[in-house]
Simulated assay, not measured.
Amino acid sequence: MAKETLFAVSLFPYLGFLWFLTRSGQTPRLALIGFYALLVFVAITIPAGLYAKTAYGANLADVDWLHGGAESFLTLSNILVVLGFRQAILDRQLSPMLEP
Rank of each mutant, 00 (worst) to 15 (best):
T27S: 13
D64V: 13
L90T: 09
L76S: 03
F12R: 01
L66T: 05
L74E: 05
F35R: 02
L21H: 09
N78W: 05
V63E: 00
F85L: 14
V63R: 04
V9E: 00
L60H: 06
T54H: 12
L30P: 00
G68D: 04
L90S: 09
L38W: 09
A37T: 14
A52W: 02
I89C: 06
A52D: 04
M1Y: 07
Y56F: 15
Y51D: 03
P28G: 08
S95Q: 10
S72I: 11
Y56L: 11
W19Y: 14
S10K: 06
G25F: 04
Q87E: 04
R29E: 07
H67C: 05
L80S: 08
A70I: 07
M1V: 11
Y56V: 07
Q26G: 12
L90P: 00
A61K: 10
Q26F: 08
F35M: 11
S24P: 07
D91Q: 10
P96R: 05
A8M: 10
I46A: 10
Y14T: 04
A58V: 02
S77F: 07
M97Q: 11
F35L: 08
S95M: 09
A55T: 09
V63D: 01
L32T: 06
L21N: 13
Q93S: 14
L66M: 14
Q26C: 09
R29F: 04
Y51L: 15
I79S: 05
S24M: 07
R86F: 11
R92D: 09
T27A: 15
L98C: 07
E4M: 04
G49V: 02
R23C: 03
I79C: 13
M97H: 10
I89A: 13
A2L: 05
D64K: 11
R86N: 11
K3M: 08
F35C: 06
T27V: 13
N78E: 08
E71A: 14
L60S: 02
T54A: 12
T75G: 15
L80W: 01
W65K: 12
K3D: 04
L50I: 15
L21P: 00
I89Y: 06
F7Y: 10
L60M: 07
T45C: 03
I33F: 12
V9P: 00
